[in-house]
Design a protein around this nucleic acid. Structure first.
Lengths: 205, 205
DNA sequence: AGGTATACGTACCGATCGGTAACATTGTCA
DNA sequence: TGACAATGTTACCGATCGGTACGTATACCT
């Protein structure tokens, strides 16, 4: 989808909105390559080559490879909450159904060959240093996920909402990881079912 | 298939004579560095420097960096099942208590600063290629984990043992990942409690 | 048209990557 | 003491890493 609505490609550089065409191509290619093969595994040379541009173009739009990786994750973040909000919007006022819809979708996505899990999670694994630009974006995304899940656990009427919210997060992260570990037929396809069992067991009686 | 290797190094052929002393130092250092900072992030130069040896020594004991990484994971595998078997041995004939003990231990391990999760999981994230030597070890470890968890779910008398076993695996992987994502106070500390809730909800009534 | 700001390309940098050749030194055990 | 395997030493390889100096083309605004 051409989601080119006000993508901020400038990296807090101060110089106002100048949208170079090359920057979008670079970010699109970097997105694909970083996600599928990993950030550390991809060099800037391959990115510019596949994008049909040259290296100076990359460094005019992005201060560094690390910041390009952070931009990739910011884009990923946008699309992530889009998917999340779709599941929420599909079941207004019914958080349990929202969770189930979101997890069913995740479970389905994991059941394709060469599934690569969550770009946020993967980036955090690649960069243990908490101060790395990519990891900063990743951690913020996960904090927000935790916040939402706990809030939904409250809305579901859980006995211990924080525990249930965290339990759902563990199942989700487990699905991302085991999806790329096991491939088709892996445990991730059972994520929605297990989440529903866990929810049922966590509600006030 | 790899074409013929000209070197006839019999890999770990168990010739019972003296194992090289440098190899152990190298593997110990590589273990620590690979686990804490990631395999791709560590160069062979840093390994030999910290080990107090030289690069040729590394390549006399290990055919390549990739194989050194695989050796690291094989060592990790050994210690992993040691921990697992300890939890099992602590509660003979009581698979539910075994799981609880194992997960309590995981939950506790995740609650230290700079926790880095599971070396197997991390390696798989770093190397999406299924043919990579490190990933081969990692995937075998995870397959075995899945097998054991499903078997324990059977022993627990679950209504749907495969689903419960997979649910436990999702929680475990989620704990590994969120442990390194959130640090202290993260969702991973709730893994044992959520697992127990899930087990309770999955037993035959 | 002309000037000017902006985007882009060519060519290059030093550092580091994984890995090796050739030879000197050590430790061990018969 | 001799033999032999393990390790150290030094220097090197081609490839790739992230990043840049500097000149050229293109678009826009009078």
């Amino acid at each position: 989808m051409p989601t080119d609505k006000n993508i901020d490609l400038t990296i807090s550089d101060g110089h106002a909105s100048a949208p170079p065409k090359a920057a979008k191509k670079i970010l699109d290619v970097a997105y694909d390559l970083f996600y599928r093969r990993g950030i550390r595994a991809i060099g800037v040379d391959e990115i510019v080559k596949r994008a049909g541009v040259t290296k100076p173009s990359l460094y005019r739009s992005f201060p560094s490879k690390d910041e390009l990786a952070a931009s990739y994750l910011r884009q990923y973040d946008l699309e992530y909450w889009e998917r999340f909000d779709e599941a929420v919007a599909a079941h207004p006022g019914d958080p349990r159904a929202q969770i189930k819809a979101f997890l069913t979708r995740i479970g389905k996505r994991t059941q394709v060959a060469d599934y690569r899990g969550c770009g946020m999670t993967n980036a955090a694994v690649e960069y243990p240093d908490h101060s790395h630009p990519a990891r900063v974006v990743s951690e913020a995304n996960k904090q927000e996920l935790r916040r939402r899940l706990r809030a939904m656990a409250v809305a579901m009427g859980a006995q211990d909402p924080d525990t249930l919210g965290d339990g759902l997060l563990l199942l989700i992260e487990g699905a991302y990881i085991s999806g790329q570990l096991f491939g088709l037929g892996g445990p991730a396809k059972a994520v929605a079912r297990n989440a529903d069992l866990l929810i049922e067991a966590s509600l006030k009686k």
